[in-house]
Design a protein around this nucleic acid. Structure first.
Lengths: 340, 340
DNA sequence: CTGAAAGCGCTTACAG
DNA sequence: CTGAAAGCGCTTACAG
């Protein structure tokens, strides 16, 4: 025995003794199992309250053969979108008595693939990957059996569990908003085949506007620098500059706004800008940024619920589901104008 | 026994068997204890590698009488400074095999006090609190014995372990930079008695500039809104508006820059602005923000080291230390000007 | 230096 | 429905 000067924590047996029942009954009450009479339940809960009992998760997990830890893989925690998302995942995990091991992939495909194989310093019960580059083929090639849920724009059909907002619909809403404001030359900053580009195209078409390749600018990363570079390229089109920009992330939008500012263009009078993600900066910047706000709590909750189902199945088959959560279009100054 | 379809994880005994030694020896190797011959060590490590052994932390913590979990209390994870800090704490904790339970206080004094008493859903081995409002008296009144390290501007003398940058020196560096640029009417946005205000005053005095009460504007929260309101109040001073602003946080500085922008003032030509924290937005905003950048990795590492020492003392006396970590002044466009 | 054994605090068949 | 007991995988005095 280690000499321990801390006052000992109450144990399950202490609670059982006080309540005058067996450990099993206390365990049943705590875990919500079985048929415990209301009277017994009340007595047990009173005893728990009395001694301030909190289960020892190490012991519980050891007995259950789990670690109580799930891993969350994001490109980088300092990217505001992922910080906010991680906050919600941690919150929803806590409600389940789980801990979250946050792992940064650096937005690197190789690192994302590695994470899929579950080489973590700790044993984990489940894995949530916010993937930037993973393709269905990577999932099909997966050998590790750890329960997995994918997050992100890319969909994975029936190969893997996935949760996201409807990115096409969200992009349509963003571009539709610009159309509604009377913008006619709407650029896409961050063009890449996928749901958001699809939504951009659909919104233009349903408004009867032409889809112009020169207004669809690819970027090599979702960075401010790339957003700035792409916007500068758009401005160099000469007379035919855009009057609206839909950027695939807020961070890219901030870079684009910088380019506009440096060229002496006014947002939104000259060019209206819409971003995507609703990072905290979106409302702090001047002009504040109109953007798509995914319901991050719903995203986190759905991911954890899907993980929970797989863990409960204990390796048994769980048909992959692809779930959608809500989003909203938040209109701010970058499209509505500044009204101090 | 639960029916488990997952392939079983290798255990310590498996490693011992393969290496042809006792569990004790394997344990010694893993934990770096005692006198193990180099030859044995190599054989054990080879066996660990061979089966891909990773210790079961639940079992280890149960045996050691610890939870392996530390709590980190921050006002709000969506505040970029704390997101970045949390990232580093998680990283340094991981290196020690610890998990971090992140808890949000909402920047509320009552919630900070409660956290001090250790009412967490899990048992925790230690506690890091990034305090906004806690005073030494709150620490003196503490009854809970959980190892604790405080973070933040406020110092706690010999009442509690604390780690921070030298806030006075940092503020002096920030204001000194503005003085060096030739600014003579330098305002403090976020005036409140404490190290940063102290540094502001010292920098002015050592430059032979007057300390003017009307240029020291208090705010009720470190928010963009408050920064904007305070800056607006400064501008309403009329002819005698400031030519430099030192804001107590970046977020406040962003709000101040917004007020300047809306009044048609140019940063830095009309008013140079320096912030504090170096949040990711500081480099994304236009103009990018000159700011004090604390060494967050050093901050996290020091806090964990101090926690480790207390945990190792196992309730025994550990004289509180107040540690300083480095910071740098990062000069960007809000003082140096825009040079695209 | 090594090995056998007890113990950490839970969960869960199992027998009553 | 309840109780006694085994077992989860480690660590650590203890005896050799």
């Amino acid at each position: 025995m280690v000499h321990d000067r801390r006052s000992p924590q109450p144990r399950l047996t202490d609670v059982a003794e006080i309540a005058g029942v067996s450990m099993k009954t206390v365990s049943n009450v705590i875990n919500g199992y079985a048929h415990v009479s209301e009277r017994t339940r009340t007595r047990v809960l009173a005893a728990i309250e009395e001694v301030g009992y909190r289960p020892n998760l190490s012991a519980r997990n050891l007995a259950r053969g789990r670690s109580g830890v799930i891993a969350l893989v994001v490109p980088r925690l300092e990217m505001p979108y992922f910080a906010a998302l991680a906050g919600r995942v941690v919150e929803r995990a806590e409600a389940r008595g789980w801990f979250v091991l946050i792992h940064e992939s650096g937005g690197d495909l190789a690192a994302e693939r590695e994470a899929l194989e579950g080489r973590f310093p700790q044993r984990i019960d489940g894995l949530i990957v916010s993937a930037q580059h993973l393709a269905p083929a990577d999932l099909a090639a997966r050998t590790d059996r750890t329960p997995l849920v994918l997050l992100g724009e890319q969909t994975f059909g029936s190969v893997a569990h996935h949760v996201a907002i409807d990115n096409t619909e969200a992009a349509r809403a963003a571009v539709g908003h610009l159309v509604h404001l009377g913008r006619r030359r709407i650029a896409l900053v961050g063009a890449t085949p996928g749901p958001r580009q699809q939504g951009y195209i659909e919104a233009l078409e349903s408004a009867g506007l032409p889809v112009l390749p020169e207004l669809m600018v690819p970027i090599t990363a979702n960075s401010g620098e790339e957003g700035e570079r792409a916007a500068r390229a758009l401005l160099d089109l000469g007379a035919a500059t855009p009057d609206g920009i839909f950027a695939v992330t807020d961070w890219v939008a901030l870079g684009a706004m910088r380019a506009l500012h440096l060229r002496g263009l006014h947002v939104p009078d000259d060019v209206a800008v819409v971003g995507f993600d609703d990072i905290p900066y979106a409302r702090a910047v001047t002009p504040s940024l109109t953007t798509i706000s995914p319901d991050r709590s719903a995203l986190a909750e759905a991911a954890l619920r899907m993980l929970e189902a797989q863990i409960a199945a204990d390796g048994g088959p769980v048909p992959p589901v692809d779930e959608r959560v809500p989003f909203t279009l938040v209109v701010r100054e970058s499209t509505a104008g500044i009204h101090p």
